[in-house]
Design a protein around this nucleic acid. Sequence first.
RNA 1: GGGCGAGUGGCGAAAUGGCAGACGCGCCGGCCUUAGGAGCCGGUGCCGCGUAAGCGGCGUGUCAGUUCGAAUCUGACCUCGCCUACCA
Length: 874
Amino acid sequence: MTTEPSTLPKTPSPAAGTAPTGAGRIERYDPAEIEARWQARWEELGLHRADLEDTSRPKYYLLGMYPYPSGDLHVGHWFMYTPTDVIARFHRMHGENVFFPMGFDAFGLPAENAAIKSGTHPYAWTMKNIENMRRQLRSMGNMIDWDAEVVTADPSYYRWNQWIFLKFLEAGLAYRRMAAVDWCPKDQVTLAREQVEGPDRVCWRCGTPVVKRDLEQWFFKTTAYAEELLSFEGIDWPEPVRVMQTNWIGRSEGAEIVFTAAPGEYREGGEVIRVFTTRPDTLFGATFMVLAPEHPLVEALTAPERRGAVEMYQFEATRKSEIDRLSTDRQKSGVPIGADAINPVNGERIPIWIADYVLAGYGTGAIMAVPAHDERDYGFARWAGLPIRQVIAPRDAKQASFVAGQVAGVGIPGSAYVAKGDDHQLINSGEFDGQSPVAAIRTITSWLEEQGKGRLAVIYRLRDWLISRQRYWGTPIPIVYCERDGIVPVPESQLPVELPMDAEFRPTGESPLKSHGAFLNTTCPKCDGPARRETDTMDTFMDSSWYWWRYLSPAATDHAIDRRMDERWCPVDQYTGGAEHAVMHLLYARFFAKALADLGIVHEREPFRKLFNQGQILGADGERMSKSRGNVQDPDELVRRFGADTVRLFLMFMGPWDQGGPWNEQGIGGLHRFLNRIWTVTLDPHGRERSAGAGSGRVEAPGEAEAARGLRAAAHRTLQAVTADHAGFRWNTMIAHLMELTNELMRHRGTSVARTPAWDESVRLLLLMLAPLAPHISEELWSRRQATAGEDWRSIHTERWPAYEESVVLPETIELPVQVNGKLRDLVPMAPGLSEIEIEQIVLARDKIRATLAGRQPARVIHVPGRLVNLVVR
RNA sequence: GGGCGAGUGGCGAAAUGGCAGACGCGCCGGCCUUAGGAGCCGGUGCCGCGUAAGCGGCGUGUCAGUUCGAAUCUGACCUCGCCUACCA
């Protein structure tokens, strides 16, 4: 149960005796002392603990992507977690029950590599790092609820990875198969398709070019949700992420068409070869067929005299993916296999080739090649000297000359002709001649369907998620292999399958589990006979695919996810993190939500209602921060010099949150000065009182009452702007507004205005607005004000966010910009809310305007109420 | 090759159809100080005129367009960043 600080008995203010009253020198702002003291205090009070059972207030589940415990929190972490903390605090000040947990993505390769290198056990290495990062996270002053922490490398967590795996297995969402998978030779591990990046197909972690390997591996059936994953209905996600996921899933509509192998010199033929095409309308233009080199039918169809060349090519194709593919020249290559296929629409025999431009993993791994109307097929046909037959032409005879050369067989066009608009028609296509391509897509597909030779088909680029990893530091896959019973899942009652702690770490390139006899050798849960454990562990993205559910019951031993808590708290209201996980973590997380919902384990099909991608802070050199580049920025030193509050503000003041940019700590002093000025106006409003005439001569010129009214208006206008900026996460302008108010207060400091209630109210509002951004100094100043006023202490962070007064915000006079022909010519002071006629009269009476008009009459007057007047003259 | 985003002072940036450069850094000048890499006050887009207060012109990557009015909307182009890449 959360303790409400406001109900606590009065606790002595930490600085009660020293709270200044205005005379004499005040003590300096000492962030180090203040921050340590308040952090300890908040912890002691349990101020950041959420009461998950409390339903009296609206819930707000806020989540920042949990960190990998690399050992140090760098400015990138600060840049992500600070504004997230501000969001949390702002919502709490609105009376919401805010849950802001934190944990560690504790499995993964660096720990294991460190073990091989330095002999430290991955567990010890990881725990030491976590310890340090907890300390650093605390030093930021975030309102993290540490009671909910999860550490994924703990058996109490990964046991439930295993449990979910078994559920997926039962439901057919997890399966094992032999596949040519991507392998990182440096990390000695397989990778999911999403984890291979760029044109050179490199490992997402270390940048090493990957190679293909044929391995028996475990997969999750992400493709089962391909269609549903395309819909983002009901969730508020940034456009770039939605686009990336949509492209990654890569839906395309077309037809699957059945070709058959033609009888040959040595064979009867008749084998079914399925191809996928988005252009069934060009079926008559197919002049050859291409299979992926790895296509399963290649072996059976290849003519004996072609076997040597075919096998050579297949070998080269695998080598090509192994050797650096940095040479991105698109030179086509391929070999004929000495067999023909029969085109189902006209019975025509076309030669079959294999070529690596056809991918085994996409569609059916086979295509009908229509060189006249597909760039890739065209390029291949030109290279191989294969025929090109045009079957689509413009209806317009004059346009037809564009491709006439092909039809007549004279001359060779420079490229494929891919247009398919309504002004085109089919030619050389038998009974379909004259139809528009779009119509023919329909008619040819239904003709094929009637003949049983094809059907409408939708295919996706998305592949199933390969989760097997040949490494030690991950969740063991709960499977045993029995000589008699084959693949046997470990029964739930025997979970967790624990990682043995006494594994040996040597740079052999093999998982230590493979040579750990006690782990490897086990008995079959079914027959009790001898069996071998699966030695692969799970991809660490498994851990991060459901951790926010675990935060709701981190210690539970009888279930993975507390269904009651899930219903109360999920989905996460706001998720923040980098966009680099768009097609990895964020896609897996959505897959999990859908799969777990179908299994009845959770109630919502989307995990995160709102997503925000913050920008990335680069090193001072403009490059991505990395240890190897040596450009990682450690904020600890800045925190020592300026305090966490200053560092928080500095990071938020840099620019829009979604932008990031190169790190440059020039300017941090400005934020520190800002806090110092707040310190001064709060604790020392009178300074060395500037009595009239003694100081700079600015004192009380406009009269105290008017100045006080102006100050109060400024404070309320600031509140209005700051409140609006919270909604858009516009921290930089929010801080700018607070600076303006502080500067305004500073101008009145030492004058009699600083003795008015308006001054007091303005300072009060300033501190409340500052509280989410700079929690320590605002708490300190708040407590000192309370002590001075003789009030009981109550944390500023449990105060309600103030409301601005509409009537105060409205200005008493405005300076209306006046343009002539769109050029600014004058600023005219007047009362707000005058009629257009009144305004016009005032404006036309102005000297400057009369001079500019020089006797001309405005042909038109544009009034933008409250904003501007534009006089249009010819 | 395709997709998305961005280009504004010396720098980080504001302004998303209505006063371009808020706020901050840096720089310049002044005050205070034994001192200052502290604090306070003032100035600071560029060019021209003026001793000055001030006045005028130009100005948001380039070129066109829409509009009374464009940093903002439209089209083409240039540059940079991110994603993607023989996806049939």
